[in-house]
């Protein structure tokens, strides 16, 4: 074997194996999002949550798919009657069909949860981004504001505010949405603020700024996409929490009222007659819990996928 041969042969395999030498160099690089999606797909909690969420949303949008009974048709003669073929959960104190009321109850919960969360998300987006992006006295001022709102236990403030906003004529729908929206933005704002601060110090943002990108462009093209994942997680969990708080406010008598069909109202009413008839309490309570659980599980699963540190 001549010397020349051995050298040329030495070159080729060395060059071929070089990329494999590096740490995992042979695998193609994956983005965080696709990585997270791959993890999500394998997580059974995510699938249970997703199925439940879809089910509840369909129930809220098209309750007629699930029942043909009229939830507001009540007859006192059927008071606390047991389950039958037409009303599988039986009848409540007023003699209304518990199954129909439970199905129709999803609409108010989901609608209030969604609207309140959108409002709260918008507030936290603006406040969090302003605090994080501008820093300085804007940040200091907004941070104190967040501290003050956090200093008031949400439900207590909600009780006062919901009472104040509503007058006895209306259904209480809008006041509850406003109350929840105004009081629950602090977590989202904090997440947004720290994400923006983290993103701001990244090299690519500095580079974009040097290239002359304006405030708005920087914010929406470069900073926001990176803050999106934790923000979505917070909002998903908040959606579940808002539905729970709505039910609590309604239960206490400062939320929905009157002829509205809502799980909170049904639970509140049935809990007074729980010794006589537990079913009108149990069913709306289970549906409410399942709905809240679905959103919280969904948020949890997404967070775990994006934040693999704690697995």
């Amino acid at each position: 074997m001549s010397n020349v041969e051995s050298v040329t042969q030495a070159e080729t395999p060395a060059a071929a194996t070089a990329p494999n030498g590096g740490d995992g160099g042979a695998e193609k690089p994956r983005s965080l999002a696709s990585d997270a999606w791959r993890d999500l797909r394998r997580n059974w909690i995510f699938w249970v949550a997703a199925v439940l969420v879809v089910l509840v949303v369909v129930m809220a949008a098209f309750p007629g798919l699930f029942t043909s009974a009229d939830p507001s048709f009540c007859q006192l003669s059927r008071q606390h009657a047991g389950p039958s073929g037409s009303a599988i959960f039986g009848y409540d104190f007023q003699g209304c069909d518990v199954y129909a009321r439970t199905i129709y109850g999803a609409r108010n919960s989901v609608a209030i949860g969604l609207l309140a969360t959108l409002m709260s998300g918008a507030i936290s987006l603006v406040i969090g981004m302003a605090a994080g992006y501008f820093g300085g006295w804007v940040d200091a001022l907004l941070a104190r504001g967040i501290d003050i709102v956090l200093g008031i236990p949400t439900l207590l403030a909600a009780i006062v505010l919901a009472r104040r906003l509503s007058d006895s004529e209306d259904s209480g729908f809008l006041p509850v949405v406003l109350t929840l929206g105004v009081l629950t933005w602090t977590t989202g704002a904090r997440i947004m603020r720290s994400s923006v601060i983290a993103a701001k110090s990244q090299d690519y943002v500095a580079a974009a700024r040097m290239l002359g990108a304006g405030h708005a462009r920087l914010m929406f093209r470069h900073i926001l996409p990176n803050a999106a994942a934790p923000f979505v997680v917070v909002l998903t969990i908040l959606l579940g929490a808002n539905i729970a708080t709505e039910a609590t406010l309604t239960f206490l008598g400062v939320g929905l009222r009157g002829d509205e069909i809502s799980w909170g109202i049904d639970i509140s009413q049935a809990s007074q007659f729980v010794r006589e008839a537990p079913a009108p309490l149990v069913w709306p309570a289970l549906f409410l819990a399942a709905t809240v659980l679905a959103f919280i599980m969904l948020g949890d699963a997404i967070r775990d996928a994006f934040d693999p540190r704690l697995r």
């Binding site: 030495a10 060395a14 494999n20 030498g21 590096g22």
Partner: peptide
């Protein structure tokens, strides 16, 4: 080059891909 990935240490002398004396 880089030190080898410890899950796939090359056959023979582990330093061979980076070595000037390799045969």
């Amino acid at each position: 080059g880089l030190p080898p990935n410890l899950t796939r240490i090359p056959a023979g002398c582990p330093f061979n891909p980076r070595c000037a004396y390799t045969r």
